[in-house]
Nucleic acid binder design. Structure first.
Length: 237
DNA sequence: GCGACAG
DNA sequence: ATCTTGTCGC
């Protein structure tokens, strides 16, 4: 992908929230559209899982999003796309989605593949208002989504067992909002929560299937590497 | 008021 | 997220 293929940076959408209060209110409104009753794509069947991630250059007000599609049976890349945009919102814990979503949507649009599942870097249900990035992206696209985060955010958890596959509840008070999942023996767990149209059980199963060798799912690793590469290629330009 | 806080 | 080199270990 050369610089010549770059299109206009994704601007901040009309009507996009400008204040924290507006953004939080929009989350409260959209939360009602999340579908939690569907099991989603079952593991073990043919599926294209798409990882999305973004890289920033706040200095230049630039964000690059990447979407990478993997065949879950082989973990081979079957599609890639990137998009550049302007930073649409400052980073505020709990409002991450407003920073990334416009550009992520553009990257997904350019992907010549229909995702069977979208794996987000961050949270879904595990969120102060139960509407994290994965929930938001799911509602906007209608696609099954899950969130796989590297940190527990504000939630509590007891360490899961030491073996790959061991899990423990991720708790907001006494409510389970996700699970800490050990993808590698003896390594810090990842934090999985449901986004849209997926059950927690399937979200965990897919996370483990997508992370056979490293702590993070291959979808996330591939998307992370791609958006970083793309951002560098932009600065070097 | 202070500290914590996905990326 | 991002700033950043080498280094210890399997």
């Amino acid at each position: 992908m050369s610089a010549a293929e770059q299109t206009e940076p994704v601007g901040v959408p009309p009507g996009w929230p400008t204040t924290e209060a507006e953004a939080a209110a929009l989350q409260d409104e959209l939360r009602g559209r999340v579908v939690l009753g569907e099991p989603g794509p079952p593991p073990g069947e043919p599926l294209v899982a798409v990882g999305v991630d973004v890289a920033y250059d706040d200095e230049r007000d630039v964000v690059v999003a990447a979407a990478v599609a993997l065949d879950t049976a082989t973990l081979r890349v079957v599609g890639e796309a990137t998009a550049t945009g302007r930073v649409a919102f400052p980073y505020v814990p709990g409002l991450l989605a407003f920073r990334e979503i416009p550009t992520v949507l553009a990257a997904l649009d350019r992907l010549g593949v229909t995702p069977g599942l979208v794996v987000c870097d961050g949270y879904g249900l595990a969120h102060p208002r139960r509407f994290g990035l994965a929930s938001h992206l799911g509602v906007l696209t209608g696609l099954p989504t899950i969130g796989v985060a590297k940190n527990p955010f504000t939630f509590r958890y007891d360490a899961p067992g030491p073996l790959r596959g061991d899990t423990s509840p991720l708790l907001d008070g006494d409510e389970e909002v996700g699970r800490a999942v050990r993808t590698r023996a003896g390594v810090k767990p990842v934090f999985v929560s449901v986004g849209h149209r997926t059950s927690l059980g399937n979200a965990i199963a897919h996370t483990l299937a997508l992370a056979p060798a490293y702590r993070l799912p291959e979808t996330t690793r591939a998307a992370d590497a791609l958006c970083r590469r793309a951002l560098q290629g932009l600065v070097a330009d």
